[in-house]
Design a protein around this nucleic acid. Structure first.
Lengths: 329, 329
DNA sequence: GTGAAAGCGCTAACAG
DNA sequence: CTGTTAGCGCTTTCAC
């Protein structure tokens, strides 16, 4: 593999000059530049990212850390980020924290030592403190699908509360007379906001009771179990708003086992808009703009890495209602 | 961040010695080693992978290249590989080729320049030539879910032909009297083998005709379309063996739209065993040991990287029949 | 404008 | 057993 020295020799200049045209830094005569470019071409030279990284520049690697690759939300996000990152010239390191705070901590350390240029983080367990510490250690972070209001952390999140309200209003409009909610983990902002949105719409209605909320874990199995507990406890429910699609799918499975007809006896709506080719009945959902979220995350991270003065705040993205068969005839 | 020099000073030895205990290479006195270890501890020193990589050692990064992150098969594989890689001390670079031969080619180049230690490749487009070229450029490769018989390429693949035969026999045993097959892309080994397995079992049966095979693309949409073409063309089909789960799900969707009762009027079985929490009816499938496949891929790659003399051949893994509702009452 | 030279942090001969 | 030293390929002052 050709090195910068080979290029410099072939072009009859010094390595410093080659480095300059490589980085468009400092002045280089037009003629010289042409010679260098030609030489690089001739040797099909590509600078060694490794050396570049050692010499103090960027590693042109970013890390993507997700809690659960089996939740289709994250592959979709990963796809968006990978595509966008590669357009910017970054390589993506994939980290699956498995929702394990300890593993996460170790990964943070690793990333620092790997000198990654930045991190796109989706985590239910990372604390603001940890994230800020990471930033202080020189690693710009963009958080996705979780927010830390009041903290100097740049995060991207859907308008969850608003979206939840819209989902519930949709169920009400469909004629539901008693709506239950399967909420996500209590310590996840997105889950809390969705629960809050549900409460916003329902709290004043005569049938409302806080026991209409059952907590799950954002996973299909958990949604199945939570739905079971909810329905066993609260008779007369004819609408379910699940905190995410995975749980909604779990609920649908339970309903099918019990012979409930959806959407006739029970209407169900989820949240996320994951593109799982689902079977019967297709799930209505509040769509998060997952691809856009990944795209924006990468964009913002790139700006942070570039040292731009980006405001470290929570950015909210709009959701959109997607009505399919599970909630409407 | 502490460097090897800091450690050497604190321990009162030379950097070479520190390097030795770091790599367990060469002899180091017990007392010295203890001092060094203590110093490393005290400074919470971690060697810079970047420097180590530049100095000619390994980059401790491997790449994982997949064609389609939206197919749940690949996140599952990725999870297995990431977990296993991290146990071995490797970091995983994620590449999504998007089934695009051109992007794939560029990625190969990139990986060479990044000096990744190895590559786990799942691709429908890469040619044996390309893969061998990559190996010649110093990057060990393990291919997953595709085989290149006769080529010096280490690949892991399920016993597709055998598995397909078993799936078809299962449908026959369930009483199917005319079974269609939705096959995958013609240029994918796995798809061909499964089609062949189907043919093995059916070719001699009175109702068989090659028009019972309809080609899809291993994606749900494609399965939907292929099933439509198949059923419109061939009346009397009461069993479908889909080349993978994604297509089987597409077929189920079509069947539901058409009011076919599954499994009463039509029995369906897929191939892959992806862990999508599916709705009604749950899909029967030939399970590939996805996790094990990822695990083995990582293991073999590690051996290749270590310079062990691993035989570059196709390794086959057993599948297992998982009967659920889509094929059995 | 361009070159010389000093590192970045680590490894690997080669001497002791 | 341990220290010295020369790089790995690139960036970056500092002179000319």
């Amino acid at each position: 593999m050709a090195t910068i020295r080979d290029v410099s020799k072939l072009a009859g200049v010094s390595v410093a000059t080659v480095s300059r045209v490589l980085n468009r830094s400092g002045y280089v005569g037009a003629a010289t530049e042409a010679k260098v470019t030609a030489a690089m071409e001739a040797l099909s030279y590509k600078p060694s990212e490794t050396a570049r990284s050692l010499a103090g520049k960027q590693s042109s690697m970013i890390a993507l850390m997700v809690p659960d690759l089996l939740n289709p939300f994250f592959p979709e996000l990963a796809l968006a980020i990978e595509t966008c990152a590669s357009a910017y010239g970054y390589t993506v390191i994939l980290c699956n924290s498995n929702n394990d705070a300890e593993k996460e901590r170790k990964l943070f350390d690793l990333l620092v030592h790997k000198r990654v240029d930045g991190l796109i983080l989706s985590s239910y367990t990372a604390t603001p403190k940890q994230i800020i510490a990471l930033q202080d250690r020189g690693i710009p972070v963009v958080v996705v699908d979780n927010g830390f209001p009041g903290q100097p952390i740049l995060s991207l999140i859907a308008r969850n509360r608003e979206g939840a309200r819209e989902a519930v209003r949709h169920l009400l409009k469909q004629g539901c007379s008693k709506i239950g909610h399967l909420s996500g983990p209590a310590d996840v902002t997105a889950a809390r906001d969705r629960r809050q949105g549900y409460a916003d719409e329902c709290a004043a209605l005569p049938w409302f009771s806080s026991s209409l909320i059952e907590q799950g874990d954002f996973q299909a199995e958990g949604g199945y179990d939570a739905a079971k507990r909810l329905l066993d406890r609260e008779p007369g429910i004819d609408g379910i708003f699940a905190g995410n699609d995975a749980m909604a799918i779990g609920a649908l499975k339970l309903l099918h086992e019990r012979g409930s007809r959806v959407p006739d006896d029970m209407r169900v709506i989820g949240f996320d808009g994951i593109r799982v080719p689902m079977v019967v009945p297709e799930l209505s959902t509040m769509v998060q703009p997952i691809y856009e979220m990944g795209e924006q995350a990468m964009q913002q991270l790139h700006r942070l890495i570039g040292g731009e003065d980006v405001k470290r705040e929570t950015i909210e993205l709009n959701t959109s209602l997607l009505v399919r068969r599970s909630s409407s005839r």
